[in-house]
Simulated assay, not measured.
Amino acid sequence: MTGDDVVRVTRTLRAASRDEVTGEYPVVEPPHRLVFTWTAGTTEGQPTRVTVTLGATAAAGTDGDGEWTEMTVLRERLPTPRTSTGASAAWRDLADKPADHLARAGDRPD
Rank of each mutant, 00 (worst) to 15 (best):
R104E: 03
T39V: 11
E29N: 04
R77F: 13
E70G: 06
G45C: 10
L102A: 05
H101F: 12
W68T: 05
R14G: 02
G86V: 09
D4T: 11
S17P: 00
H32I: 11
Q46V: 15
T83E: 02
H32M: 06
P30F: 03
E20L: 11
V21L: 12
E44W: 12
T22F: 01
V9H: 05
F36M: 08
S17Q: 10
G66F: 10
E67A: 13
A59S: 13
S84C: 12
V35P: 01
V21D: 03
L94Y: 10
A40T: 15
W68Y: 14
W91N: 02
A95L: 15
L54Q: 07
H32Q: 08
D100N: 10
T62W: 05
R82M: 07
V6I: 13
T2M: 06
T10F: 04
S84W: 01
P30M: 00
A103Q: 09
V21P: 00
D93R: 02
A40N: 08
V28P: 01
T57L: 07
T39R: 15
V9P: 00
L34W: 09
R77W: 12
L94E: 10
G86R: 06
E76Y: 04
Q46A: 07
P79S: 04
R33S: 13
T85V: 10
T43R: 00
P109Y: 03
R18W: 03
P109S: 11
E44D: 13
E20A: 13
A89V: 14
D96A: 08
T12H: 14
A89C: 01
G64V: 02
R92F: 01
R14E: 07
T42C: 08
V27W: 04
D63Q: 07
V52I: 09
R108E: 08
A103Y: 03
T37G: 01
R104S: 01
D100V: 15
W91P: 00
E29D: 11
T85H: 13
T51Q: 05
V52K: 00
D110L: 10
G45W: 15
T12G: 02
R77Y: 12
R14C: 06
R49E: 14
V9W: 08
A99Y: 15
D110C: 02
T39F: 06
A60Y: 10
H101E: 02
T53F: 07
V7Q: 14
V28N: 01
T53Q: 14
A40G: 03
R108D: 05
V21Q: 04
L94K: 01
T12V: 09
Q46F: 10
T53M: 05
E24N: 05
E76C: 06
R75F: 05
A95D: 10
R77M: 09
W38L: 04
P79M: 03
Y25R: 14
A40D: 10
T80N: 11
A59L: 03
L13S: 05
E67F: 06
Q46L: 10
K97F: 10
R33F: 09
T10V: 12
V73Q: 01
H32F: 14
T37F: 04
V9Q: 13
R82Y: 08
P98F: 05
L74K: 02
L78D: 01
R18K: 07
L102H: 11
P81W: 07
P47S: 03
P79A: 07
T83R: 09
A103L: 11
T72I: 08
T39L: 13
S17Y: 03
A95Q: 02
A89M: 09
V35S: 04
T53E: 15
P47H: 12
